[in-house]
Simulated scan of single mutants.
Amino acid sequence: MSLTIPRGVRLIVDSNDFAGLCASNRDLRLEQAADGGLIVMAPASPDSGGRENELSFPLTAWNKGKGLGKVFSPSSGFTFPNAAVRSPDASWIRRERWEALDPRERKRFSHIAPDFVAEIRSPSDGLPDLQAKMAEYIDQGVRLGWLIDPTTQTVEIHRPGRPPERLEKPKALSGEDVLPDFTLELAEILYD
């Protein structure tokens, strides 16, 4: 059985129903807007999934060496203070913040905003939608966000209290004070 949702129609679900939908549709990437609106995303293409991996692997390696926090995959959902449930392409939370969560909370769509998030624009993503998502992340407590766009070979860096910074064809990104001593080389992510 499948469900076709016409353009312009929004489905609103409560948090319990959303968790059930996710459990019943593990092959889909689902998110929930702050107003309960269901957001359905196609699984990543091999190209997009490869780029996500090129981001996650060095982030994980850096974290293993530093031991400062926990790295999460694109299938990890977080419940933000505004009740939205989001799944960034890559995310990281400081260890003391993660360990302060009740262990039962860690097994759900944890009520916590990551310290760092990254989104990689795929060909099917609208740039204004991703920019709005990045603004929401920052508004909800994320301290550093990267919007990586292989189509235009640009990166937007999002930080609290500042307008996004746009970089044209950067070679690398700094984790700044959020991810100390982390540098992401962009050769396999931003460039083919």
Results as ranks from 00 to 15, higher is better:
127 L>C: 01
117 V>D: 03
130 L>R: 03
138 I>P: 06
125 D>W: 06
152 T>P: 00
147 L>A: 10
149 D>A: 12
159 R>K: 15
132 A>P: 00
151 T>P: 00
124 S>I: 07
167 L>Q: 10
135 A>E: 13
132 A>F: 02
159 R>A: 14
131 Q>E: 15
138 I>L: 12
121 R>L: 14
149 D>M: 12
147 L>K: 08
125 D>G: 04
131 Q>G: 01
141 G>Q: 12
113 A>H: 04
124 S>H: 07
117 V>Q: 03
162 R>Q: 15
144 L>M: 09
126 G>Y: 03
160 P>G: 07
170 P>C: 12
159 R>F: 05
114 P>E: 06
168 E>V: 14
152 T>E: 15
126 G>R: 15
122 S>W: 10
140 Q>L: 01
165 E>Y: 02
144 L>W: 02
131 Q>V: 04
147 L>P: 09
152 T>S: 15
164 P>F: 10
161 G>T: 10
132 A>W: 02
167 L>D: 05
125 D>Y: 06
146 W>F: 14
113 A>M: 05
115 D>V: 07
121 R>N: 05
158 H>A: 05
123 P>W: 08
158 H>M: 02
120 I>M: 12
119 E>L: 06
137 Y>S: 01
142 V>P: 01
141 G>T: 10
161 G>V: 08
118 A>Q: 04
152 T>Q: 14
123 P>K: 07
116 F>V: 00
121 R>A: 15
116 F>R: 00
144 L>N: 05
139 D>S: 15
166 R>W: 01
154 T>H: 13
164 P>I: 11
123 P>F: 08
120 I>W: 04
150 P>Y: 09
116 F>Y: 13
130 L>S: 06
163 P>D: 13
147 L>I: 09
143 R>T: 03
120 I>T: 12
164 P>H: 11
128 P>Y: 03
158 H>Q: 02
145 G>A: 14
127 L>M: 13
135 A>N: 07
